[in-house]
Simulated assay, not measured.
Amino acid sequence: MASLNVYSILVFLFLTCGAVMATKENNQIIKENNCETKMGLPCVLEAFTSIFNTGSISNKCCGKLVVLGKVCHSALVKRTLENPPFKDLNPATIIAKSIQTWNNFLALIDLPSPSA
């Protein structure tokens, strides 16, 4: 339960304080594409945990992330990496994990539904 609170705080920082620290380019992409309002907090937490820590994401949130779009996904990840709590992370590793996560989401969405 404590880890959920930590992730809630980190996501809050990601969504609010990140705008101050992010590059103009990422902020512009996020603003123009209305990226921050396309997913609810529970799905943001799942995606965040799956990319920046070890965790999984539900099919429901996977679908929401794909609807969010790759441009938003990439800009939000890059902006998060610019925040002080994440400065020590290896950007190449996180971006690679982000791309892998994105590709996994697309694969899940493309799978045919099991017939009843």
Rank of each mutant, 00 (worst) to 15 (best):
K70T: 05
C62D: 01
N90P: 09
K60T: 10
A19T: 11
V66T: 09
L15H: 09
L108F: 00
K78P: 00
V67K: 15
G18E: 01
G69Y: 02
C43V: 06
S115W: 09
L65C: 15
L68T: 11
K64G: 13
I29D: 02
P91I: 05
R79W: 06
V44I: 11
V77Q: 01
P112N: 09
V11D: 02
L15Q: 08
N83L: 15
P114K: 15
I29C: 10
L81R: 04
D110E: 07
T80W: 03
L4I: 14
L106N: 14
I57K: 05
I51W: 01
D88V: 13
L13G: 12
L76C: 08
N5R: 10
N90C: 09
N34T: 08
L45G: 02
S50L: 02
P42V: 10
P114D: 13
S74A: 10
F48M: 01
Q100F: 08
K31G: 07
T16V: 12
L65M: 15
S56Q: 09
I99T: 13
S113M: 08
L13I: 14
S58F: 07
G40L: 09
A116L: 15
L65H: 09
G40M: 10
N83W: 09
S98D: 12
V66F: 01
V6W: 08
S8N: 15
L108E: 07
L81K: 04
V67D: 15
K70N: 08
K31E: 13
K38M: 11
C43L: 06
T49V: 14
T16P: 00
N59Q: 15
R79I: 08
S8A: 12
V44E: 05
P42F: 07
F105G: 00
T16S: 05
N33D: 07
N34K: 14
D110F: 03
S115H: 09
L13W: 14
C35Y: 02
T23I: 00
L108P: 00
C61Y: 03
N33K: 14
L15Y: 02
V71L: 13
K70V: 08
L89R: 10
T49N: 08
L4M: 11
F48W: 02
A107E: 10
F86W: 12
K97M: 08
S8D: 14
N34L: 09
G18P: 00
K38Y: 03
N59K: 15
K38H: 08
F52W: 02
I95P: 00
V6K: 12
T101Q: 08
F14T: 05
K78Q: 12
V66A: 05
I51H: 03
K31H: 13
S50V: 04
E25C: 04
N33I: 01
W102Q: 05
